[in-house]
């Protein structure tokens, strides 16, 4: 990006409203992952796109101030670590890695399917953070400078 100031006031105003709708939709997809098509990855990508909308509209300077990048890195690592820990709990409870060891509940209910919603949430956070951080780093790179050839 040439300037870090972002786009015009119209885009900024629209983004301010639409981002929250997109985040809401992302969480809807993530939380209903065990009932409908979608789930962790799909919802996570929508989450990342919501944050990337802010990046496009407001520029990378504002985005980095608004979202604490260091914190996002930690959340990314912690989410996959929690995923592994829940998987290892499966070994200790029922003897198989990633075993579904919580009560399954009733079919078609939001709170059901044991560990699958937990995994969906963790995967969603991981995908969102990874994708957002990857694109942020690519966008921040100054393509004209940096070579020492």
């Amino acid at each position: 990006m040439k300037n870090n100031q972002g786009m015009s006031i119209i885009v900024k105003t629209v983004t301010r409203v639409s981002v929250w709708l997109m985040v809401l939709y992302a969480w809807y997809i993530i939380l209903h992952g065990h009932l409908t098509p979608g789930g962790g990855f799909g919802g996570g990508v929508i989450f990342a796109i919501a944050m990337l909308n802010v990046l496009l509209a407001y520029g990378s300077e504002f985005t980095e101030k608004w979202l604490k990048i260091r914190l996002l890195h930690d959340i990314e690592a912690a989410s996959i670590l929690l995923f592994l820990i829940v998987g290892i709990l499966g070994i200790s409870v029922l003897g198989g890695f990633l075993t579904n060891f919580i009560l399954k509940g009733k079919l078609y209910e939001l709170i059901s399917a044991g560990t699958i919603p937990i995994f969906n949430i963790l995967i969603g956070i991981k995908v969102a953070m990874s994708l957002f951080l990857a694109v942020l780093i690519l966008a921040k790179t100054n393509i004209e400078n940096g070579g020492e050839v």
């Binding site: 690592a77 670590l81 592994l84 070994i91």
Partner: peptide, 20 residues
């Protein structure tokens, strides 16, 4: 059962390293 730990241990190490 030792088998799954050959995958779990390095994965765990990788993400603990990124976190701390």
């Amino acid at each position: 059962m030792i088998l799954p730990y050959f995958i779990i241990i390095p994965l765990l190490a990788a993400f603990i390293i990124t976190l701390i």
